[in-house]
Design a protein around this nucleic acid. Structure first.
Lengths: 213, 213
DNA sequence: GTCTATAGACGGATAGAC
DNA sequence: GTCTATCCGTCTATAGAC
């Protein structure tokens, strides 16, 4: 049961280096030799830890899944929990922008999340399992987070009561597009962070409840 | 000069079938044998039309580029041209939604544009040339179209004068995200078209000039 | 321009010594 | 668990007949 205890670090290093390569070149374009070289072992030694190349990918997909679920604030937010929202009442655009920017910084720069996101983008058309995973991670999860936020802000009398699904899409989608832009061209991060700030402020301005006061 | 005249159709068929494969599996994961099989010729015959596999990709990238520039309404719109905007004055949400949905239908279902878009998504992290092309095609071009539209609508007294870059991002980004969703899961197209309709209507509602009348 | 045949490199995976 | 050596299939690309 504990046979592989000492090899855990090698095993994890293989997964990590493989994800490095998969997230740039994709699964098919990455060879076992490249992975072995990145880890610093011989190609054949990979087969002491995984039965096949596909086995490596399967384990990465699982770790992307659970890693995201455990660490992303998008997954763990609970806008019905008084403890979670206790410092979020009387939210304005500036405050929301700060909260959102903090989360963007996290998912942009957490190495595992960033690489997992890029790998799903590359592999999404090859099989429907990955396609659904990609939709769940980078669409449904984010939408649900923002739908929760919008509901909270409407309940808290901060925002006007429009179609909350559409409001969530309008608030989250520019951010999603700009995260993709940063994944492609990291040098544009400052431009993107500025755009996000202006976007959130303007969203609050047009949807705020007491617009005439 | 006209030597390859008669072989043009085979050459184009190679490009077309190669794009079919590249847009699903990616460049590296696609073999010359797969391309030859799809065309119905022997693998070696491909080299009568292209010097290498990379040469095929280069030609596809050029055709994606010029094809998009020539056919997409996003590239050819000119909101300063009286002829172009002559049927677009006094726009409301319904009218804008109709115009936008028509264009979405086109870029979703035009085979060349759809496959080109997917290929750029798959290949965007492998080299910076493709990354910039992807940003240009599927971000800057679309943003410029919507910035033009927003400017026109503000000039035409339809919309309030907010930061037009942010307005364009808020109008276009949900659509971009939903197009990606359709590329991944085509069965969700109806859901997406409904969301786009609701989104455009609500955008016009919150940004329209005479909100109090 | 397409074909068969093949070169030569590299792919994933296994056997067996240590 | 890592190594060397090797199997066998597939890859891109070329040579040369037709």
């Amino acid at each position: 049961m504990k046979k592989t205890q000492a090899t855990g670090s090698t095993r994890n290093e293989i997964l990590e280096k493989a994800l490095d390569l998969f997230s740039v070149n994709g699964y098919e374009a990455t060879s076992m030799l490249q992975i072995a070289d990145a880890v610093g072992i011989r190609k054949a030694s990979l087969y002491s830890h995984f039965t096949s190349k596909q086995d490596i990918l399967d384990n990465i997909i699982n770790s992307v899944l659970t890693g995201y679920a455990n660490h992303s604030m998008f997954s763990n937010a609970n806008w019905d929990d008084p403890e979670y929202v206790k410092d979020k009442s009387h939210m304005d655009g500036e405050k929301a922008s700060r909260i959102i920017q903090e989360q963007i910084q996290y998912i942009l720069h957490d190495p595992h999340i960033a690489k997992g996101r890029k790998m799903l983008v590359i592999e999404q058309f090859r099989n429907s399992k990955i396609a659904h995973l990609q939709s769940k991670q980078n669409y449904e999860n984010i939408m649900n987070y923002f739908i929760g936020m919008i509901h909270f802000l409407i309940r808290d009398n901060v925002l006007k009561e429009y179609d909350s699904l559409i409001m969530a899409a309008q608030l989250s989608s520019p951010i999603t597009v700009w995260i993709n832009l940063c994944d492609r061209e990291p040098e544009r991060e400052q431009e993107v962070m500025d755009l996000i700030h202006r976007h959130v402020l303007q969203f609050f301005e047009v949807y705020q409840k007491q617009s005439g006061l």
